[in-house]
Design a binder for these strands. Structure first.
Length: 567
RNA sequence: UGUCCUGUAGUGUAAUUGGCAACACGUCUGAUUCUGGAUCAGAAGAGUUCAGGUUCGAGCCCUGACAGGACAACCA
């Protein structure tokens, strides 16, 4: 590449998303006095997943980048479905991702009073009315997407009657479902959401924050935009399915606003990942039916699941950065997520030796009882991480996969007559093995070592094709290792019309290995500590790990060219 | 039989006021390597859903098709 081209390439600015473009334009035009203020509005009825992370990164990220603020606002307008239980986990996950809302922790329920007053105001202005019909009838009158609705017989009630009824609804004089408050807009609108939408309903369940103060609760459409308005939000970023709500959002803001300020709703595509499901309902179902061990099962796309799996916040942010924000409903390949986590972990994790499926190797010409300390580099990507010593002795464990009695052509590992390097130690040659004739399994392998080939010694210059990791048998610690694979064996389990997504659960998504042999330095590892098990993948200490039974979760495998060649 | 949104390599995204379709992942070569990792060098792969139109010139503008999605919860 010529110097000129190189310069050109360096000058390419990372392109910004259409949302950021809107924001930049609004700021430039001086809308809302040049402020940017966003919000992240989770409903406290479940755990956050990586799709939420995409929304969090956008709303917090835009505010950060353009010198604004981002509020955390719990959208708690439905006491039937919501619970405090979820609030702490949601806050923990946002913090874990590295974002902070300072003192701006809000709740839609903070505004129940203002919302009630606004509803009353709409009634007074003839823009809302109480409907006494059942849900079924109201629904039938709504029409269909292709047919206009018909007006409710209660649509023309007097203001005073409406006012009286609404007060009594909130006093608990009526049963749930018997009355609703509706905005009076247009029953013939081609947009169903404008056909006199229900804005208040009676719910007698106690609310986790306001207790039994209210008997009427605002619907999403009547709470969200107004909450934005009350908080001075300038850009209300949400997912595509709310696009059709935008006219209603704007209509309500129009009734509410008194000056130039108005929040703007912009919609982007939600995150879909291959080989998993993302809806809260389905995730909850997986938990309840025991398909996974809980919300934080390392196979779950929840943030707590990914954390337990060994993902770092940086890797998730990197991934989200990579996929971008558009209006196209896309399914993103998990392999991109895996790439992001490998890239991150490659730089930060210490390399260690762990043998998952041990096969004993006896070095027949190595003195019995002798132990040598060999030095290994902790992280070749980061010299400052230094070195460590691990013991070497006559009997070691290697991976069962690293020995073959009858190897194919390009097998660079151990086989009868073959030489390999034991990483950090000696070159050994295989000159025999013990096979269980009944089962056909290899039980022991016998080798001889070349004393002058120890790493660092002059003889170590000798080239061999393969290098194996190993653990000294006498010094190894036993460990449990949990190998995770994709939860589903279909790219799009939820998108199959005739098949329930549960039919695609991958029966091999969790494989528990016991009796794995890990190097002694791992004895002091703490939950969430991350390592690269050399030649295998990235692993993370599980919460259930104890000194007696260390437990490691596999985050992701290393890229494996050999398995491809071998196919 | 409506309204709204969306169609760019296998996947996800780019492409100033119309100006040689670019990047990442994945795939494939080769180099290098005491991790079959990482790194480095390179390659293949789309002519932008289709058909018209405007223009010297269209992924971008216009018209019309086609395809996919969203909308008919007293959910958010």
């Amino acid at each position: 590449m010529s110097e000129e081209n190189l310069k050109e390439k360096e000058e390419i600015k990372p392109s910004i998303s259409f949302i950021e473009q809107f924001i930049a334009d609004d700021l430039k035009e001086g809308k809302n006095s040049g402020r940017i203020h966003t919000r992240f509005p989770p409903e406290p009825n479940g755990y956050l997943h990586i799709g939420h992370a995409k929304a969090i990164c956008l709303s917090f990220g835009m505010a950060q980048k353009y010198g604004g603020k981002c509020n955390l606002r719990f959208d708690d307008t439905n006491p039937v479905k919501e619970d405090v239980e979820y609030i702490d986990s949601i806050k923990e996950d946002i913090h874990w991702l590295g974002f902070d809302w300072e003192n701006r922790e809000f709740y839609a329920s903070d505004y129940f009073g203002k919302l009630y007053d606004f509803a009353t105001d709409l009634i007074k202005r003839g823009l809302a009315y109480v409907d006494d019909q059942t849900a079924e009838i109201i629904s039938a009158q709504k029409g269909t997407p292709t047919q206009p609705g018909t007006e409710s017989p209660f649509r023309e009630r007097t203001v005073s009657e409406n006012l009286d009824l609404f007060v009594r609804m909130n006093n608990g004089e009526f049963e749930e479902g018997s009355h609703v408050l509706r905005a009076k807009i247009d029953m013939t609108s081609p947009n169903m959401h404008m056909r006199d939408p229900i804005i208040y309903r009676i719910i007698k369940t106690s609310h986790h924050r306001t207790g039994n103060k209210w008997m009427v609760y605002p619907m999403y459409d009547f709470a969200h935009g107004q909450s934005d308005y009350f908080e001075g939000i300038t850009h209300s970023l949400c997912t595509l399915e709310f696009e059709v709500h935008r006219p209603l959002y704007n209509w309500l803001i129009d009734q509410l606003k008194t000056g130039d300020y108005r929040p703007r709703q912009i919609e982007f595509n939600r995150l879909n990942l291959t080989y998993t499901v993302m809806s809260k309902r389905k995730l909850l179902q997986l938990v309840q039916e025991g398909s996974v061990s809980g919300w934080d099962d390392p196979r779950m796309p929840t943030l707590c699941g990914l954390r337990r799996r060994g993902y770092t916040p940086e890797s998730i942010k990197k991934f989200i950065d990579l996929i971008g924000y558009t209006k196209v409903e896309a399914i993103n390949d998990v392999s991109l997520l895996e790439h992001a986590v490998r890239e991150d972990l490659n730089l930060r994790t210490p390399r260690v030796f762990a043998v998952l499926n041990p096969l004993k190797v006896i070095i027949t010409n190595y003195p019995e009882g002798k132990v040598e300390e060999v030095e290994l580099i902790n992280n070749p990507e980061d010299e400052t991480k230094g070195t460590r010593n691990i013991p070497f002795s006559r009997e070691i464990f290697i991976e069962q996969d690293d020995f073959m009695e009858n190897p194919p052509k390009k097998f660079f590992r151990l086989a009868p007559g073959n030489e390999v390097r034991l990483k950090g130690a000696y070159i050994i040659k295989c000159d025999g093995f013990k096979k269980n004739e009944k089962t056909g399994s290899i039980e022991e392998v016998y080798c001889t070592y070349e004393p002058d080939t120890r790493s660092g010694e002059p003889g170590s210059e000798k080239k061999v094709k393969g290098t194996l990791h190993w653990v000294s048998a006498k010094h190894a610690i036993n460990a449990e290792v949990r190998l995770y694979d994709r939860l589903f064996n279909h790219e799009d389990p939820a998108g199959q019309k005739d098949d329930d997504y549960r039919n695609f659960l991958n029966p091999g998504s969790l494989k528990v290995l016991r009796g794995c042999k890990i190097e002694p330095s791992l004895g002091s590892a703490k939950p969430l500590d991350k390592f690269q098990f050399q030649r295998l993948g990235y692993f993370c200490v599980d919460y259930e790990s104890t000194r007696e039974n260390p437990v490691f979760n596999r985050t992701v495998q290393l890229k494996d060219t050999w398995s491809k060649i071998n196919k």
